[in-house]
Structure formats: structure tokens, C-alpha cells
């Protein structure tokens, strides 16, 4: 973990209630895809955890959904303003387990952490299949970015207004070497039930601190209690305690 002051270079709408924010500053604490930053907002007591979409030498890009008061406030911030950020939080995805045909499954605002992961996997020369699920046409984002990386990119919408109608589990390939997923819990449970290979899930919980101190986000797993912010947010499939 590092505490840094990051400067907003860009904060623009991408899709319905979804924004892309580019920040520059000391991001040396941001180490791995799947990690998140925790942003302090004026007038809000708790920070807001946001996963990292992409990382460059001098900054990071976040994609977030304005769902509550805090994230709506974040969406109103403009270029040139500064954010107090805790960076490098969470364990992140384990790239060493990808194998030769990794599959990425993202739903809605669960898509962003998979982009940097896809970039790293493509950089390592692996063929990557990315299935991105959204509610409707106006919710879709990041499709071109995944395609530009050379991923086999498939988009689904629940209402069929764009891409294939249905859920990510309807468009995923029959097999893969390993999968990485992030999205709303009903989607993750469907992925958990329908995948045969091993894989990793990025989970979400309401957090107090975001760095492991308060035990506010602990869940039960097969390997004991785990703090989603510190021991997670990424858990391996075999650790997760969901019913068959």
C-alpha cells in the first residue's frame, strides 16, 4: 500500500452512468492487474474502492460506475483536481496460472480490472478470449480496447440490444486453460457453476478501510476467513464456499 496524491487528467462519460478517469502521479504502489485504489472524497468519511483499468508509467486509468452519492461526486470532479489515493490494494490476479488459453469473463463494472490483465497476458504472447457482458446497448464500453489488444472479444447484452443476447456464460467457449472473472454476484455464481476449469474470481464487499485493518469485509472461504480487501479481492475457485 502507498498513499499518493493523484491528479485528474481526464474524467469523461463512457456509457450509461459509467466514467473513465485518467490519473497521474506516483502510481508505483500499483503492482498487479486486479488490484484497486481507495479514493478519499471531500465530505465522505469512507473512501471509495475502484479497480484499476490500466496502468502506465506515470499514471492509471479507472473505469467506474456512478451508482451512489460517493461515485456520483467522483463523476463531477474535473481535470486538474487532486485525489488522495491509497494504491496497490488487494492481491490481484495470479498471471502465472493462465496457461495457454486463458478466458476472461467480465460483467458490467466487473469488466475494467480484466483489461490490464488482458494486456499483460497478450504481452506474454497468449491468445486471450474475453467475454464482456452488459445489460443493454447503452451500457457497453471497452469492447474496442479489448479488440485492439487482439483478444477474441465477445459481447453479450441481457436484452439482446447489442452483441449476443444473454449472459457471459452463454457466449463463453467450451474450454479454456484457466479463467479470470469479475462482475455482479449472480453472474459470478453462474460462472462458478458452469465452468469446468480452474479459475479466479474477483469479489466485492462493502469495505471500511480497504487495507486489511478493520475486518469489515471478511467472508468465509474453504481456507478460513478472508478479508476481501487484503487477502482478496481475488479468490481461487476452489476457495469459494458457494452451494452447488
Amino acid at each position: 500500500m502507498k498513499q499518493s496524491l493523484l491528479w485528474i487528467e481526464e474524467n469523461i462519460p463512457l456509457a450509461r452512468d459509467v466514467f473513465r478517469m485518467r490519473l497521474t502521479g506516483d502510481v508505483s504502489g500499483v503492482e498487479r492487474p486486479g488490484q484497486f485504489v481507495n479514493l478519499r472524497l471531500e465530505g465522505r468519511f469512507l473512501r471509495r474502492p475502484i479497480s484499476v483499468f490500466d496502468r502506465a508509467e506515470d499514471g492509471i486509468t479507472l473505469i467506474y460506475k456512478a451508482v451512489g452519492e460517493g461515485t456520483r461526486q467522483l463523476a463531477r470532479m474535473t481535470e486538474g483536481e487532486a485525489l488522495d489515493a491509497l494504491t496497490g490494494l488487494g492481491n490481484g490476479y495470479d498471471l502465472s496460472r493462465a496457461g495457454d488459453s486463458p478466458l476472461l469473463l467480465g460483467g458490467g463494472v466487473g469488466v475494467p480490472p480484466l483489461y490490464w490483465l488482458a494486456k499483460e497476458l497478450r504481452g506474454a504472447g497468449k491468445p486471450v478470449c474475453a467475454v464482456l457482458g452488459f445489460g443493454s446497448r447503452e451500457d457497453v464500453f471497452a469492447e474496442e480496447e479489448f479488440r485492439a489488444l487482439g483478444c477474441d472479444t465477445r459481447v453479450t447484452t441481457v436484452d439482446g440490444s447489442y452483441g449476443r443476447k444473454g449472459f457471459v456464460t452463454d457466449a463463453m467457449p467450451e474450454s479454456c486453460s484457466y479463467f479470470y472473472t469479475c462482475g455482479p454476484e449472480p453472474m459470478l455464481r453462474a460462472v462458478w457453476a458452469k465452468t469446468v476449469s480452474e479459475g479466479e474470481f474477483s469479489l466485492e464487499e462493502r469495505m471500511g478501510c480497504g487495507f486489511g485493518a478493520c475486518m469489515g469485509c471478511t467472508v468465509r472461504t474453504k481456507s478460513g476467513p478472508k478479508r476481501i480487501c487484503k487477502d482478496g479481492p481475488v479468490l481461487r475457485k476452489e476457495e469459494i464456499l458457494w452451494e452447488e
Binding site: 468519511f45 469512507l46 460517493g70 464487499e205 475486518m215 469489515g216
Partner: peptide, 19 residues
Amino acid sequence: FGNPTPRIAECPAGMINAV
């Protein structure tokens, strides 16, 4: 183990926990 999640809520100038 403590309580099930959510264990944390926000309030004006503070927070509520049920760890």
C-alpha cells in the same frame, strides 16, 4: 468469525460497523 457482511455503513462524519 463475527457477523455476516455487509458489516460497514457510512454516515455523515462517521461510519457504522458490525464486525
